[in-house]
């Protein structure tokens, strides 16, 4: 019965598939921050031209991207949560984690700045001030890399966001929707610089705090362990992994700019 079903599905997919030969591709689970900044639109054509391998990006939060890797639904990952990445590799789901690039987070907020954090260089102090002022804060709340980083900042500021009080608003949304909402309710938010730079609906939001070490945002590339899932496309995924962390990929990352501003900085070793 199962074989019959699989055969029927194979036949059927021929009917839906666009004309042309079987394409060579890998599936990359990555984050909304990289996708929405436009980085992939810059990197993937260069990689494809060189190797003939198409990279299909499924852009989700880092938590969900790791889950996709765990279930074998992606061949490689490009994510940003060092603690989660190390756990993923330690549990045997991924292999060969490598540094790829970094950018930084920025604390954005309304121009009126009710917590008075503008111009500060200390993100933790700014977070503490926001909590004291009980100024509205829009949190991703979606277990993404940015959300995990935000929670670490609250912890360092010794603020218990679970205590409630209405000023801390968990949205359960991606970076863009969170910024849309923050703009709509004049709330503070933590954003990655890439998404912020390409975000168009800012209204009164502006960068208030940046340039703190605590806002460092490193990205890692991981191969999904083929020993866990036989269907993983090992060779092609490895070609991508090595290209991205090699000189050509690093140069391509450095040349990606929005309005003349470089958004990601390669740091592969």
């Amino acid at each position: 019965m199962k074989r019959l079903l699989l055969a029927a599905m194979a036949l059927f997919s021929l009917a839906v598939a666009p004309a042309g030969a079987e394409e060579r591709f890998i599936t990359l689970a990555s984050t909304t921050s990289t996708e929405q900044s436009g980085l992939f639109g810059h990197l993937l054509p260069a990689f494809k031209a060189e190797t003939g391998i198409e990279v299909r990006v499924v852009a989700v939060g880092t938590g969900q991207a790791l889950k996709l890797g765990e279930r074998g639904d992606a061949d490689a990952l490009l994510v940003h949560d060092r603690a989660g990445e190390d756990k993923f590799v330690a549990e045997g789901f991924g292999i060969d984690r490598r540094d790829v690039m970094y950018n930084d987070f920025v604390v954005v907020g309304p121009a009126s700045d009710p917590a008075g954090i503008k111009g500060g260089k200390d993100a933790v102090a700014a977070f503490a001030k926001i909590a004291v002022a009980k100024a509205p804060f829009a949190s991703r709340g979606d277990d993404s890399g940015t959300h995990r980083s935000e929670l670490r900042l609250w912890k360092k500021a010794e603020v218990d966001v679970k205590a409630g009080g209405g000023w801390y608003r968990e949205l359960g949304a991606g970076m863009g929707p969170t910024l849309n909402t923050a703009a709509g309710m004049n709330a503070y938010a933590l954003a990655d610089r890439g998404t912020w730079a390409s975000f168009k609906n800012r209204q009164s939001l502006a960068i208030l705090v940046e340039g703190d070490r605590a806002l460092f945002n490193p990205y890692g590339s991981i191969l999904v362990n083929p020993e866990k899932h036989k269907a993983v496309k090992v060779a092609d995924a490895k070609a991508w992994h090595l290209w991205l962390t090699g000189p050509k990929g690093q140069a391509a990352i450095a040349s990606f700019k929005i309005d003349g501003e470089q958004l990601f900085f390669g740091d592969a070793k």
Partner: peptide, 17 residues
């Protein structure tokens, strides 16, 4: 359709099918 699911071997996840 997930590779870890019952019909994963068909490789149909993330396709128009």
């Amino acid at each position: 359709l997930s590779r870890a699911g019952p019909l994963g071997e068909a490789g149909l996840l993330f396709t128009p099918t």
